[in-house]
């Protein structure tokens, strides 16, 4: 039987197909990561000249005088560190300095362009805050109803219906807000400005509701059944169990939902572009028009000159949006979702 040994050829065979496939799959998978890196690099790259534009168009003598001499500037406070002075580049030339960026005026197209981001930040925060104020209670309660109180049949109906809202293009929601909601609420409350932070936030809430709803509902319905049953067995009613057992157990998920909803609202463009009125006012009145960071990019990028300071500032705003949403996602992903999982695994 020793001859039979030779029938086998178990020796490693050359299979280029599998190796190539493996290589291609790995390489292509890297694209997602590469894109994140490239977004970082290329959005920042176009924003960078703001901080170094002195080299580009200003003579070295001018730079020196600006660095060492006390900058007269157009603002009154002159307690600037050397570093800030370096960044500060004469407003008359149309470039943005740090002080200009931190000012309270956004007037990019004027003799003395002002690139103050404060009103835009305030605008974004205001609109986002309103959106969450409306969306959070509605979607959390709706998720509670769907996950806990509704029959299985009703749940199968509610879930896809509300999730369809996520499929509405934001331009459609913006349109609906601009044409229908804006008139409806102005007639109802009789305020001055038809388009304002409230209308923008209300419209945004429509985009945020499906996000908060879906994640909360998922968190609620993944609370282990034993926990629910234990509570019911102790004589608690269904709503007591929902409120005092299920909802607390799912809080990390609810927080994740709120954070992701915040990120979505903060970065959303078309809805706010269409529904907020787009005036760069720094006010805390919810019934006045606002201009958000994202809407500013959307409205102005098409009209700027490539390489211009205004162009760079818009990219800077984009970088800020990217960093902020990136950080929010990271927090939601690593901290809160991880905690939710751990909590349930611990309970197992």
């Amino acid at each position: 039987m020793t001859t039979e040994k030779n029938i086998y050829s178990l020796d490693r065979k050359f299979r280029p197909g599998d190796g190539i496939a493996r290589f291609v799959v790995h390489s292509v998978s890297f694209i997602s990561f590469a894109v994140i890196l490239l977004i970082f690099i290329f959005v920042f790259r176009e924003a960078l000249p703001i901080f170094s534009s002195t080299e580009k168009s200003v003579s070295s003598e001018y730079l020196q005088s600006e660095t060492y001499g006390d900058e007269p500037g157009d603002e009154s406070d002159s307690e600037l560190s050397d570093e800030t002075v370096l960044l500060e580049t004469g407003g008359a030339e149309g470039r943005a300095g740090l002080r200009n960026l931190l000012s309270r005026e956004w007037q990019p197209v004027s003799g003395q362009p002002k690139y103050g981001l404060i009103p835009l930040f305030v605008g974004s925060l205001k609109v986002t805050f309103i959106a969450l104020l409306i969306a959070a209670p509605l979607s959390i309660l709706a998720a509670l109803y769907t996950a806990v109180f509704a029959s299985a049949k009703l749940r199968e109906l509610i879930k896809p219906t509300i999730e369809l809202l996520a499929g509405f293009p934001s331009v459609v929601i913006g349109f609906f807000a601009l044409i229908t909601l804006a008139s409806f609420f102005q007639n109802l409350f009789g305020y001055t400005y038809r388009l304002n932070a409230f209308i923008g936030g209300l419209a945004l809430s429509l985009a945020v509701i499906p996000i908060i709803f879906t994640i909360t509902e998922e968190a609620l319905s993944s609370v282990p059944r034993e926990m629910t049953e234990a509570s019911l067995a102790l004589g608690a009613t269904r709503w007591q169990t929902a409120l005092f057992v299920i909802l607390p157990a799912a809080t990390p998920g609810v927080f994740a939902a709120l954070i992701l909803g915040f990120g979505r609202a903060f970065g959303e463009t078309m809805i706010v572009l269409m529904a907020t009125g787009n005036a760069a006012l720094t006010s805390f009145n919810f019934l006045e028009p606002v201009r958000t960071l994202s809407a500013t990019i959307g409205a102005e990028m098409a009209e700027v000159v490539f390489g211009d300071t205004h162009y760079n500032v818009l990219f800077l705003i984009g970088s800020l949006l990217f960093i902020i949403t990136f950080a929010l996602n990271a927090v939601a992903e690593f901290y809160i979702r991880g905690r939710l999982l751990k909590r349930f695994r611990g309970e197992d």
Partner: peptide, 17 residues
């Protein structure tokens, strides 16, 4: 991360890259 990047940032990236 990609899923959470605001769509306007994709627009900027398309322009810049």
């Amino acid at each position: 991360t990609l899923a959470g990047v605001p769509s306007i940032v994709f627009g900027l990236f398309g322009l810049g890259f």
